[in-house]
Amino acid sequence: MVGVVLVSHSHEVASSVATLASGLAGKGHLAPVVPAGGTPDGGVGTSSELITEAAWRADQGVGVAILVDLGSAVLTVRALLAEGDVLPPAARLVDAPLLEGAVAAVLTASTGADLDAVEAAASDAWDYRKV
């Protein structure tokens, strides 16, 4: 299955979003969901080391969708992708809202969908209306 990595400036946010998305997907054939939040010392920020570790943990050989929260998270993932060999070969930065996109990505990945379908589902979350 496609893996999903959730990058936030906060360990608590990344972990909570991963827990929520996994819980909504239910038991059974759950896609790997790995949070990468905060800095290695527990502070607020982003960490290339934590992101890289999370991507390899989530990778099952068919792609990894990486969702991010804010500015430097985007820049950090882009820099890692530009290096070419730091992240799994089919890792992809997905332009989606973190929470809604994570839920859509995990649900879609858990059906066995490919990386393109997971990215599309997560990106479609930009259009979710709440009122």
Score class of each variant (00 low, 15 high):
residue 8 S to C: 06
residue 91 A to E: 04
residue 116 D to F: 00
residue 80 L to W: 09
residue 35 P to L: 05
residue 10 S to V: 07
residue 1 M to G: 10
residue 44 V to H: 10
residue 22 S to D: 05
residue 63 G to S: 09
residue 107 L to G: 03
residue 83 E to W: 12
residue 89 P to Y: 01
residue 51 I to F: 08
residue 130 K to C: 00
residue 85 D to A: 13
residue 25 A to H: 03
residue 60 Q to F: 00
residue 79 A to W: 01
residue 41 D to M: 09
residue 117 A to P: 03
residue 53 E to G: 07
residue 86 V to A: 11
residue 74 V to G: 00
residue 131 V to N: 13
residue 128 Y to I: 14
residue 25 A to S: 11
residue 130 K to L: 15
residue 127 D to R: 15
residue 112 G to Q: 12
residue 18 A to Q: 01
residue 19 T to D: 14
residue 54 A to L: 11
residue 110 S to A: 08
residue 22 S to N: 02
residue 90 A to T: 10
residue 2 V to S: 02
residue 37 G to E: 04
residue 101 G to Q: 06
residue 16 S to L: 12
residue 117 A to E: 15
residue 108 T to W: 00
residue 46 T to V: 15
residue 70 L to M: 14
residue 101 G to P: 05
residue 18 A to L: 00
residue 27 K to Q: 14
residue 38 G to D: 08
residue 66 I to D: 02
residue 78 R to T: 13
residue 79 A to Y: 06
residue 99 L to Y: 05
residue 49 E to V: 13
residue 105 A to G: 08
residue 19 T to C: 00
residue 65 A to R: 13
residue 30 L to K: 05
residue 67 L to E: 05
residue 29 H to Y: 01
residue 15 S to K: 14
residue 16 S to V: 11
residue 74 V to H: 11
residue 103 V to F: 01
residue 64 V to E: 02
residue 18 A to I: 06
residue 128 Y to N: 11
residue 37 G to N: 05
residue 94 V to P: 01
residue 77 V to W: 00
residue 26 G to I: 10
residue 17 V to E: 04
residue 28 G to Q: 09
residue 84 G to P: 09
residue 105 A to D: 07
residue 22 S to W: 01
residue 100 E to L: 13
residue 26 G to H: 10
residue 103 V to R: 03
residue 71 G to A: 13
residue 34 V to W: 00
residue 126 W to V: 09
residue 119 E to Q: 14
residue 99 L to I: 15
residue 78 R to Q: 15
residue 36 A to G: 10
residue 117 A to N: 05
residue 43 G to V: 12
residue 64 V to K: 04
residue 58 A to K: 07
residue 18 A to G: 03
residue 102 A to W: 04
residue 69 D to P: 07
residue 72 S to C: 09
